[in-house]
Design a protein around this nucleic acid. Sequence first.
DNA 1: ATGATGATTAACT
DNA 2: GTTAATCATCATG
Length: 194
Amino acid sequence: MIVDISFYQRDALIVAPELLGCYLVTEKQEGTTIVRIVEVEVYLQDDKAAHSYRGETERTRALFGDGGHAYIYFTYGMHYCFNIATSVKGRGEGILIRAGEPVEGIEIMRQRRGKHNQIDLANGPAKLVQALGITKSDYGHDMSTGNLYVLSKDHFGPPERFAIVTTTRVGISEDKDLPYRFYIEGNPFVSRTK
DNA sequence: ATGATGATTAACT
DNA sequence: GTTAATCATCATG
């Protein structure tokens, strides 16, 4: 079952842990690819590490729209990352999808990534974007429709039970201490585990 | 128009 | 553990 847009129109800190175990799907020319979401990070508006902190710009427009739309950005001169805007219009908060466990279309992901090791397919935000074939043209996409959406945890049968680890975020220089990173305990596809 | 800055990754030692 | 690669976006002039 596709997750409804209203799911995203709540506080990011509530939505983020609920997103773990759900399935992120893309249907592109090459075929359908699916990963199980195992790691996410929250970015709020009143949060120095967030792109929305300094207000709305051309780049961050989608973060300030209605919850449930894709926010994609380019960084380090070579990588794209994928977020889902949450909450209500004008609020500027969202969830970065950091890692996923390949479920379907694994051969397609291998081709896109040029790697054969299944662990390395989507265990990082830019890797996940590449494996799923997400591009800038998906910017602002409505996550409850079309060829890019999320399926509920029980889509493929009774969901597996798991514990959620809450910790600090990765790769930022401000507001480092906020516990806004969530991942599935013990999952081998989570990035940068100790 | 120009310069600083990354919500990273891969390939090293 | 360290580091180079590389450019869109933003703030400033």
